[in-house]
């Protein structure tokens, strides 16, 4: 077991979130029709932080959360620990949905989340925002907004919270 290594501190995370909020607004030419969807568990706090920043810079956007455990491709292969119940209290049809997660790794969670989202409706477009992209993709999925690209080995654990990003 290697010692934990802090890669980003709380200030770095705050700056990264602010930059990503600007990028989301810029890419979509404002936030008309944009919704944020945090993926359970880790994406929920980040979606809330991004929403806070977007509201400060521009106008408030709807925020929801999505639990994709029932859509995973490894059901039955490992224990499943669903997060809180999905909460999408807005119409998904025709919106630009920004899926939000803390760490992007193999891409399998995002794949599951895309399927889950499709069961709620047909967004006009789906974009992906992650605080950390640690590489090692196993599916053709790429993020649209990244806080930090972080080279890792597959055996390492990456945790990303408002307090910072830690590799262990």
């Amino acid at each position: 077991m290697v010692a934990a290594k802090q890669v980003l501190g709380p200030d770095d995370v705050r700056r990264a979130v602010t930059r990503m909020a600007h990028e989301i607004i810029e890419r979509n030419r404002g936030v008309d029709g944009v919704v944020l969807v945090g993926i359970q568990h880790g994406g929920v706090w980040l979606a809330a932080s991004l929403a806070e920043e977007i509201a400060r810079i521009d106008t408030p956007v709807p925020v929801g959360s999505l639990d994709a455990s029932l859509y995973r491709d490894d059901i039955g292969l490992r224990p499943v620990a669903p997060g809180a119940v999905s909460d999408l209290s807005f119409d998904v049809d025709g919106v630009t949905a920004v899926l939000v997660d803390d760490v992007l790794f193999t891409g399998r969670t995002v794949r599951a989340a895309l399927d889950a989202l499709a069961d709620y409706g047909r967004p006009r477009a789906v974009q992906l925002a992650v605080l950390v992209d640690r590489g090692h993709r196993e599916l053709p999925i790429r993020p649209d907004f990244v806080g930090k690209n972080l080279p890792t080995s597959t055996g390492e654990d990456v945790s990303a919270t408002a307090e910072g990003v830690v590799i262990s």
């Binding site: 568990h41 039955g76 224990p79 499943v80 620990a81 760490v103 790794f105 399998r108 969670t109």
Partner: peptide, 17 residues
């Protein structure tokens, strides 16, 4: 579907291979 008893959630459990 659960592949055994459900483990407590760990940090960065996302995308564990």
């Amino acid at each position: 579907g659960s592949g055994g008893p459900i483990a407590p959630t760990t940090d960065a459990a996302t995308d564990v291979t």
